[in-house]
């Protein structure tokens, strides 16, 4: 319950924050919903915390050139309830509504969530299905990388020392696209045992585009491209969906724990992929 001691700063300018990140022993504090519990259990003990929660320039949701840019410290509550996100990228708002609980959604941030890279977090499934990009920034440079390259492994990202998430960039959804995020809750923690995000667009009675992102199933979230390929060009009949969904766990080294064995997780992934796809399909225009 009591963290080890640390130095704390809360700059209000992004440049100041980035300059303070030179030290190896420094951690960025955003909403704190992942980091603070770890510090309280002394599983993390950074020597210095740079709190980016007061940097106004990191809290934004803009529409820009066919994308939504969501600032790193935008809370789950803001994403869930933003009229812009709800109309332009409803999948992300839906995913945000499933995260943690009311208090966690008030504090937790999109940048903090992805930077923590918990393999059972909710956002990654949707961000992968959306083919989102992550804008990263250091004191000296900026870059933007695909979300699939951002998640490297369990609790491991492509963030370089001194680098932070500046924004998450998602495409504005075509109005005809149907999307859905379906999740099996771990009954104690509320994390995803398996979470599946699906996006489908139809054209001329056929599935023109299918995207499926999966979280919870394995050490890192992934895009189920084999499912996507199986659907493209299909009419979307229940049996086609079922067949395609059955591919989701193929070749996956599934997590196994108290709450779900690897086999059961794989099975849940298949069922929930099917359900997420069916709902997404029903929401296509």
């Amino acid at each position: 319950m009591i963290a080890e001691n640390f130095e704390y700063s809360a700059p209000t300018k992004l440049d100041d924050a980035l300059r303070q990140l030179s030290n190896e022993d420094t951690k960025v504090l955003a909403g704190g919903m992942s980091l603070i519990p770890l510090m309280k259990l002394r599983l993390a003990a950074p020597g210095q915390l740079v709190d980016i929660g007061r940097i106004a320039d990191l809290n934004f949701i803009h529409e820009e050139g066919g994308t939504l840019r969501i600032g790193a410290t935008t809370t789950h509550y803001q994403v869930e309830n933003s009229p812009l996100v709800r109309s332009r990228c409803p999948l992300l708002a839906e995913a945000a509504s499933h995260i943690g609980d009311l208090q966690v959604r008030n504090m937790g941030t999109i940048g903090g969530s992805i930077a923590h890279a918990d393999p059972a977090a909710d956002y990654p499934a949707s961000l992968l299905a959306l083919e989102a990009r992550v804008a990263l920034v250091t004191a000296k440079s900026k870059r933007e990388i695909p979300i699939a390259d951002f998640f490297v492994d369990t609790f491991t990202t492509a963030l370089e020392p001194g680098e932070i998430v500046h924004a998450v960039v998602v495409p504005v959804e075509d109005q005809s696209t149907g999307t859905s995020y379906q999740k099996v809750l771990q009954p104690a923690s509320g994390f995803a045992i398996v979470g599946v995000a699906a996006r489908i667009r139809k054209s001329g009675g056929k599935i023109a585009m299918a995207r499926v992102g999966v979280t919870g199933l394995s050490g890192k979230p992934f895009r189920a491209t084999q499912v996507e390929k199986a659907l493209e060009g299909a009419a979307g009949s229940p049996s086609e969906i079922q067949k395609a969904a059955a591919l989701v766990s193929d070749g996956v080294d599934a997590n196994s724990d108290l709450h779900a064995s690897a086999d059961y997780r794989k099975h849940l992934a298949r069922v929930y992929t099917m359900r997420a796809l069916a709902i997404a399909l029903s929401r296509t225009a």
């Binding site: 704190g32 603070i36 519990p37 709190d51 208090q103 966690v104 008030n106």
Partner: peptide
């Protein structure tokens, strides 16, 4: 104005 868990916030964050 936001409900938060005060065990998951440092006092300095509330400055």
């Amino acid at each position: 104005g936001k409900a938060i868990k005060s065990c998951s916030m440092f006092a300095v964050q509330a400055d």
